[in-house]
Amino acid sequence: MDFEKIQNEIGGFSRYQVVVITTVAWLAFSAGFGTQSAVFISAIPKYRCAVPPIDDPDVYPSLGESDIKNYTIPYDTATAEYDSCNRYDYNLSSCQGDGDLSCVTFDEDPGTIPCDQGYHYDQTYYKETTRTQWDLVCER
């Protein structure tokens, strides 16, 4: 059978077909928002301020993640967690490596500053997510 013959038998192209096609197109278009929303609400792995060169295992091979947090990240006793968006205001450019942490002084209050060297993300479960790729954490 010919398509035009069938179309003529059912009444041709009418307002009903326009409404159906428009409705289906609108539903398909709006469904795209739901399927793509996972990109923007993706997982946020644990993170902290990056503190180079202290968190570089080549420079300080003996420091583990807990040591780095203890030395450079403020601890909030009320929430029992380390601050993810701030670090102590140490002059990290004076750190020499080889286990020498004289750049981190405990005898005075260094104050805190927002993360100025980027962020360090836990890559245990995710190598990269949308949040980690564009640093969509803290105030961002």
Score class of each variant (00 low, 15 high):
88 Y>M: 03
93 S>M: 10
37 S>H: 11
59 V>D: 02
47 Y>L: 10
18 V>Q: 08
48 R>F: 03
23 T>Q: 05
65 E>N: 12
17 Q>K: 11
103 C>S: 10
37 S>W: 13
21 I>L: 15
40 F>M: 12
91 N>Q: 09
59 V>A: 08
73 I>C: 00
133 Q>H: 15
35 T>M: 13
31 A>E: 09
10 I>D: 00
114 P>M: 09
96 Q>V: 12
6 I>E: 06
5 K>V: 13
33 F>H: 08
132 T>I: 07
48 R>V: 00
109 D>Y: 12
69 K>L: 15
29 F>V: 06
90 Y>A: 01
15 R>M: 10
37 S>D: 12
57 P>D: 03
108 E>R: 09
99 G>V: 10
1 M>Q: 09
92 L>V: 06
42 S>Y: 01
24 V>A: 12
14 S>A: 09
21 I>P: 00
108 E>C: 01
120 H>I: 02
70 N>M: 11
96 Q>S: 12
2 D>K: 13
83 D>G: 04
111 G>K: 06
41 I>P: 00
105 T>H: 06
21 I>H: 02
118 G>A: 05
129 T>A: 08
105 T>P: 00
52 P>A: 12
87 R>L: 01
39 V>L: 13
126 Y>C: 06
23 T>D: 02
127 K>T: 15
31 A>S: 15
71 Y>G: 00
86 N>W: 04
5 K>W: 08
48 R>C: 02
50 A>V: 04
19 V>N: 06
14 S>H: 08
24 V>M: 15
53 P>N: 07
114 P>A: 12
66 S>N: 14
23 T>S: 15
18 V>A: 10
64 G>T: 13
85 C>R: 01
126 Y>R: 05
137 V>A: 06
10 I>K: 07
87 R>F: 01
16 Y>M: 10
127 K>P: 01
23 T>W: 09
112 T>P: 03
134 W>I: 12
125 Y>L: 15
4 E>Q: 09
12 G>T: 07
54 I>L: 15
40 F>I: 13
20 V>D: 00
86 N>R: 13
97 G>K: 05
41 I>E: 11
83 D>F: 05
